[in-house]
Amino acid sequence: MSEILSVKNLSKRFDDLTVLDNINLSVNEGEVVVIVGPSGCGKSTFLRCLNGLEDIQDGEIILDGENISHDKKTLQKNREKIGMVFQSYDLFPHKTILDNVTLAPIKVKKRNKKEVEQEALALLERVGLLSKKDNYPRQLSGGQKQRVAIVRALIMQPKVLLLDEITAALDPEMVHEVLDVVLSLAKEGRTMLIVTHEMQFARAVADKIIFIDGGKIVEEGTPSEFFDNPKTDRLKKFLQTFSYNK
């Protein structure tokens, strides 16, 4: 497996507040990396740094052999290669589901409209939402909207897909329908970085789990090492909060 994304000594500061401190990470093609940690630890900021929604103060981000960390000119081009799905879906409310999905390929990649629409319909069918293609986002449930958001990112054929707490605003049944989609993407070999609080899901989907606290990677490992043999006290304490056995 070849390395697709490499992060070296990444630091992010807001004035004198250090949000991310010397983060190193290597992601291979087809690998699923799950990032967990308490709220405010910098998980989301880390994902946002990767596609340039936040600037970084130190370090390098190398995507597919290309250093993308500081180049404002190529930023837009590189974003095509990094898909991102957000907690609040952020579908475009004034566009139909089909138009939401086809906007970027048509505008950004200048692809043929008919061709893109065929592809979009196939992807919508895959996530069970073909019948919603002419609806507007407000007519869909949260879980449906999030599946559309995933399709909207997928159709750009990104090399890496970033999922930022995509189930945090959903009820348990909707969480399941969205995570099923993510699981199937993992099985077909998509490279993904996933920030989540769903520990069961993390265990099922991850090749590697990293635990961030206070802007640093505290521990990383395979799911079984991570959950069954946590090495640091901080991670042990964090994992205990998910059980209610007194």
């Binding site: 596609n51 974003r79 952020d90 475009f92 906007l103 909207r152």
Partner: peptide, 23 residues
Amino acid sequence: VPVSQSESALALGLSQSQLFGSV
């Protein structure tokens, strides 16, 4: 218009002018 609308459009690779005109 929420900032998150701009961010999700930028994340898709839209330019500032495309983002403004279409979103």
